[in-house]
Simulated assay, not measured.
Amino acid sequence: MRDFEGRIALVTGSATGLGRSMAVKLAERGATVIVNYSRSKSDAEETATEIGAAGAQSVVVKADVSSPEGCAALRDAATAFGRLDILINNAGITRHARDHGDLDALSKNDFMDLYAVNVVGPYLAMQALKPLLQKAHEASGRASAVLNTSSIAGTTGIGSSVAYAASKGALNTMTLSLARGLAPAIRVNSVCPGFIGTRWFKNAMDEEAFAKTVKSVEATTPLNVASGPDDIADSALFLVSDAARHVTGELLHVDAGLHLGFSPLAAR
């Protein structure tokens, strides 16, 4: 399926994990992809290599999405193509403080750091890239697509920390506001994953703890599975495809039902 043939896509935070999976899947379906990273150039180049293997073109851009200068660099990269059809705001960070009742676990700076990347970053990216998204709409007559990578933390209040959950809740609200404000030229949606078996989770714990977490997720999600990045990416790309051309302002849970809570019947 080459339904993104000829389209220009930008995926922030696409050096690894879910971002890489979305970038590669876009390429497999025909898109030219702008790959973004903030720290690991080698990982970003691996993503670009996979995109090339899929027969697509890519550009790798180092940029910190939490700064206007970083988003200007993304804009400059997209300007070379004359338009932008798809923007996926995937870059994100967290602070691990899983006891949400421990109010000494997080500082003001923790909150400010998370909001800078998880909330302000997507806003700055959309601010910088809005003219190019509008140009794509004018050229094709099709609404351009913005997808924000959120989390079930933003809809349930669970997750790695109170600050992380609050930042994703803010991102969800911003998704709704901008879906109204940027229509009809631009559609804005969010995907809300739960557990994803990537370095994001693995780096927060040792190998034994990670294995236990996977088993726990498999036992307590209604679908009895632990999601990987490709599982999330397949659903996420629906929201930027023509199949979702009439979808905007949606928060799509892709978490094997984790947001529903534990079901004894599902664990049988």
Rank of each mutant, 00 (worst) to 15 (best):
P222L: 05
P193W: 06
F201Y: 10
S177A: 15
A209M: 08
V225C: 00
M205D: 08
N224Y: 01
C192D: 11
G169I: 09
V240L: 06
T198C: 07
A183P: 07
R187V: 08
G228N: 12
G169D: 06
A236D: 08
M174E: 15
F210G: 05
K215Y: 01
L239K: 02
P184C: 14
V240Y: 05
T213E: 07
V191A: 10
L223Q: 08
S241M: 01
E218H: 02
A179L: 12
N172V: 15
L171M: 15
S241K: 00
T173H: 15
K202W: 09
N189G: 05
A183I: 13
D231W: 01
V191S: 12
A211P: 02
L176R: 14
I186M: 09
E218N: 03
L178Y: 12
T198E: 11
N224I: 00
A170L: 15
P193V: 08
G169L: 10
G181W: 04
L176Y: 11
L239S: 03
T213K: 04
E218P: 00
P222I: 08
L237I: 12
V188W: 04
A204W: 02
K202S: 11
G228A: 04
A185Y: 04
V188L: 07
S241R: 00
K202Y: 06
M174K: 14
P229Q: 13
S216L: 07
M205N: 07
A183L: 14
P229D: 13
I232A: 09
T221V: 02
W200G: 10
A209K: 06
S190P: 12
P193Y: 06
R180G: 09
M174N: 14
V240G: 07
A209W: 00
S227A: 11
N172E: 14
A204S: 13
A236P: 06
V214T: 02
R187N: 09
T213N: 04
E207M: 00
I196D: 05
D206P: 06
M174V: 15
I186Q: 07
G169V: 07
A170I: 14
D234Y: 02
D234C: 03
L171R: 13
F238M: 10
E208Y: 00
P229C: 09
D231Q: 01
A185C: 11
A170R: 13
F238N: 08
A209P: 00
N189C: 11
A204E: 15
L178G: 06
I186A: 07
T175D: 13
A204K: 08
A179F: 06
L237S: 11
V240D: 08
N189T: 04
V214M: 02
V217K: 04
V217W: 04
G197K: 01
A226C: 03
S190H: 10
T175G: 10
S241A: 02
S190M: 12
K168R: 06
V214L: 03
S235G: 15
L182K: 09
I196W: 03
A209I: 03
